[in-house]
Every structure is written in C-alpha cells, then in structure tokens.
C-alpha cells in the first residue's frame, strides 16, 4: 500500500476567514484505499482542511493535487463536476433532503451525474441494503432515527463509487452504539470499493477505524505516522 502513489495531496494550505486563520500551512496526503483520520480540538481547522481538500473552499495559499491535476487551479464548474464524479460526502447532520424519500436521497448524486432514473434507483436500493437500511427506503428522513439517517447518508456518499470519501464528524450526532455501527459499515464499504476516506473526527474511538491519523492543531496538520 505504501508503494502506491498518493491520490490526493495538499501542501502548505493557508486559509483565513477575515482575520481568523483557520489553516496556517497544512500538509496532507492520502493514498488509494487508505483511511486517514483528521483529529484535533474543535476549532482547530479540521473542517476547513476537509473543505479545501474536497474543492469546496478555495485556499488562500498552497496547492492541492488530485491524481496529478491541481485542484486549486480548477474553476468552480470543474471542481463541482469532480465532486459529483470522484468524491463522496458525509456530514454530521442535516444533509438529507427532507422532502425526498431515503431511496431518492441516495439516488440523487447519480441522477445529478446523469444516470437514468431506473439505474439510479436500483443502485440506491442496493446500497441501502449494504448499509442495512433498505427497510426505510420509502420513508422520508424525518421519520427515521439518527443512526438510520447517517447510514442513508453513507449510502448516498458511496453510491457513485467515489475514489475519496470525505466524512466530517459522521458520528458526531450519534450515540456510541450507532456510531460504532455506522463506522463499521462505512469503513467496510470503503474497503470493498477501495475508496480512500478522509475522516474528520475529534473522537479517538472513531479515529481508531483509520489506518493512520493526522492531527490538526492551530491550523497546522501534523502527520504523526510520518513524524514517528
């Protein structure tokens, strides 16, 4: 695994909101199939790092390279297209479209990418089954539990078979049992599809699902594996 080329690397990322520096020279890299935990106290810049890596936020300085292309040099439309095709996302909460059924929510990224409705629905159901929530396929997010919702969100993130899955505190709103289950399913599914996972968390037990952790402190990312 170590021999593989990095999939996504970032060098010297800086990002400030007004006068608050959120990132101050952060480095990062992840290889295909790797699960990397981004840890650090709250407010240290973890989410900002994730947003930069995913091309949601443009850093003030530094470069991000994804499979040889410089992400920071792409325009918004290209980055959006990349997010549709190559990336998947799971956030803490509030991410499912409340009006759509769970199956429709999972099918949505495929539909945005232009997959036919039937094919998208089939894939959505398949993923709901893999995450053991196919029984709520026809329900709306308002009618299911937080753990189920988060599993639906994981299914939605993985349905496009992304190369990188970005997860920002995916268990933050769940109890330990549900959190464990979501992490187990998430890492298992990612391993099956050989997706790399950028896992932002401040919980050590969640980070323990990773292959390696990166600690962000005061906007600087520190790869303890490399440091050791």
């Amino acid at each position: 695994m170590t021999a593989a080329e990095p999939l996504l690397t970032a060098d010297g990322l800086c990002k400030s909101y007004g006068s608050t520096p959120a990132l101050d020279g952060a480095d990062f890299s992840i290889r295909p199939g790797e699960v990397v935990a981004v840890m650090g106290p709250s407010g240290s810049g973890k989410s900002t790092l994730l947003h930069c890596l995913a091309g949601i936020v443009v850093p003030d300085a530094g470069t991000i390279t994804y499979r040889g292309d410089e992400l920071s040099a792409m325009n918004d439309a290209r980055r959006s297209a990349l997010r549709r095709s190559d990336f998947g996302f799971v956030f803490q909460f509030g991410q499912l479209v409340p009006e759509l059924t769970c199956a429709e929510n999972v099918a949505l990224p495929l539909r945005l990418g232009g997959t036919s409705r039937k094919e998208a629905a089939r894939a959505a159901l398949e993923w709901l089954r893999r995450l053991e929530v196919d029984d709520v396929a026809a329900q709306r997010p308002g009618a299911i539990s937080g753990g189920q919702g988060q599993r639906v969100a994981v299914a939605r993130a993985l349905v496009t078979a992304p190369r990188v899955l970005f997860a920002d505190e995916p268990t933050g709103a769940l109890d330990s049992l549900n959190g464990e289950r979501v992490m187990q399913l998430l890492t298992a599914a990612a391993r099956d599809t050989d997706a790399a996972v950028v896992l932002v968390t401040h919980e050590a037990r969640v980070a323990a699902y990773s292959d390696r952790e990166v600690v962000v402190r005061d906007g600087r990312a520190r790869d303890t594996a490399r440091a050791a």
């Binding site: 949601i56 959006s80 549709r84 095709s85 479209v97 945005l112």
Partner: peptide, 9 residues
C-alpha cells in the same frame, strides 16, 4: 450547502 458539496450544479 450540502447539495453544493455534492457537486450539484
């Protein structure tokens, strides 16, 4: 914001 993160146009 979430939908945009997903790459929604």
């Amino acid at each position: 914001s979430t939908l945009v993160a997903f790459g929604t146009r």
